[in-house]
């Protein structure tokens, strides 16, 4: 791609779209994900079978409520795209610039697969 002189029409790229998802996902991840980790990584798990069963009950009750489903869908999906974009650019910054186009496939494709999987999971709760 050559650098055009002023006025030369150039093709805007789809990077804007991925960046918008990255940016929105960054906000979502920053605000919600630490609390998610506290909840599902520390508060709900337990070595005691009775406590774990109670935790499962709480989680099922929460995740079964549609407003929570919507929040989970929004936060997790956007956060996945945030990670995908950042991982892609980190790999580019680390020297994989020539693979910039190819990297879109595993990165954004992975995030998309995660989104579909999550939607199916939430649908089934």
């Amino acid at each position: 791609m050559s650098r055009g002189k002023s006025g030369r029409p150039t093709r805007p790229s789809g990077e804007a779209f991925w960046w918008a998802l990255f940016s929105a996902g960054g906000v979502m991840a920053a605000i919600f994900v630490p609390a998610f980790i506290l909840a599902t990584g520390f508060l709900l798990p337990s070595g005691d079978p009775a406590a774990a069963a109670e935790g499962a009950q709480r989680l099922a009750a929460l995740a079964g409520w549609w407003p929570v489903k919507l929040v989970l869908l929004g936060v997790i999906t956007l956060s996945l795209f945030h990670c995908a974009h950042r991982i892609r650019h980190t790999l580019m910054d680390l020297g994989m610039r020539n693979l910039a186009g190819f990297l879109k496939l595993p990165c954004y494709g992975g995030a998309l697969a995660g989104t579909v999987w999550l939607a199916l999971v939430l649908w089934g709760i």
Binding site: F36, G55, A56, A63, L122
Partner: peptide, 23 residues
């Protein structure tokens, strides 16, 4: 996290087992 939610989708018993494993 998605795995955890998937376990909830399978059923409370599966979710309880998973939460025990996560401890």
């Amino acid at each position: 996290l998605i795995v955890t939610l998937a376990k909830v989708g399978v059923g409370e018993a599966a979710a309880a087992e998973w939460l025990q494993a996560l401890s």
